[in-house]
Amino acid sequence: MSLLATNQLSIRQGQRTLCHALDINIKPGECWLVLGENGCGKSTLLAALAGWHAPQAGKINLHDKPLPSWTSQERAKRMAWLTQQDDSAFPLTVLEKALTGRHPHLGRWDWESTDDIALAQHQLARLDLVNLAGRDLATLSGGERRRASLAAVLAQQAELLLLDEPLSQLDLRHQQQALAILRDETNAGRSLVLVSHDPNHAHGFASHVLLLFGDGRWLAGPVQETLTEANLSALYRHPVRSHLVDGQPWFLPGPHVA
C-alpha cells in the first residue's frame, strides 16, 4: 500500500535538471529525510510533490491516483505542505494561523467549529505557543513564527506532511520538542517528508533517506543502508564522520581533505 509514489519523476528548474527519473514510494508511518546541498532542489522537489511545481516528466500518485486528478480540497485533506516562507503581509494572530490548517476540512459556508478551535489550540499547546495565541505573527521571533506555521500544518491533520526545514531558526529545546512531536505523528501513522540540512535531525524516527546531488542524481533507501559516511561525504563534497553516541550513529563534519 502506497501513500505517495513517484514514477520516473524528473524535475527541472530553468535549464537545470534537479532530479532525474526519481522512483520513491512513501508508505504510511514512514519518515523520509531529504538531504542535499544548498540549491540542490530539495524545496523544488517538495513543491512538485505538493502539486505546485509542474514536473518535467514522470508521475506522482497520491493513494495510487495521479496527483493532478485530485480536487484541491481532497488533496489538501490528505497532504500538508509547510513551505519555507512563513511571513504574512497582513496582521495575523497565532491562533488564526493555526486555524488556517482547518480550511480544507470546512465547506464553503462552514465556520470554524469549537472542535476546530480546540484542535488548533491543542497544536499550539504542543508547540509551547498557547500564551502567544492572540499575538500578531509579525511581532514574533523567526523561531516562534516557524512553530506557528508548524502548528497550522499539524492542525491540517493530513496523512502526509511535506515539511521544508521545519526546524530552522528553532532553539535547541524547541527543536527537540518539535522533533518529539514529529516522532509522535509518525507513530500515529502519519507519513513525513522532511527537508533538512542536518543528517542527525531524523534521529530515531526517520525510516528512509533521499539524497539529492543537485545534478539529477539521487539516492534513496532505508536509513541504515543509505545514511552512511561515504554517501554523506559524497553528498556534501566534504568528509563526514560517524560517531557512536549511546549506540546511535551521529554524523559530524570531518577534517577537510585536499
Binding site: 513543491a47 505538493a50 502539486g51 505546485w52 480536487t71 484541491s72 480540497q73 481532497e74 488533496r75 489538501a76 485533506k77 497532504m79 500538508a80 505542505w81 509547510l82 513551505t83 516562507q85 504574512s88 503581509a89 497582513f90 495575523l92 494561523k97 488556517t100 490548517g101 480550511h103 480544507p104 470546512l106 491540517q156
Partner: peptide, 18 residues
C-alpha cells in the same frame, strides 16, 4: 476564507486546497 489564506501566499493557499 480562500482569500484569507491566499493573502498568506500562493503556495500556502495551494497547500490548503485553494
Amino acid at each position: 476564507r480562500d482569500l484569507n489564506i491566499l493573502s498568506h501566499g500562493q503556495q500556502a493557499a495551494h497547500a490548503l486546497g485553494s
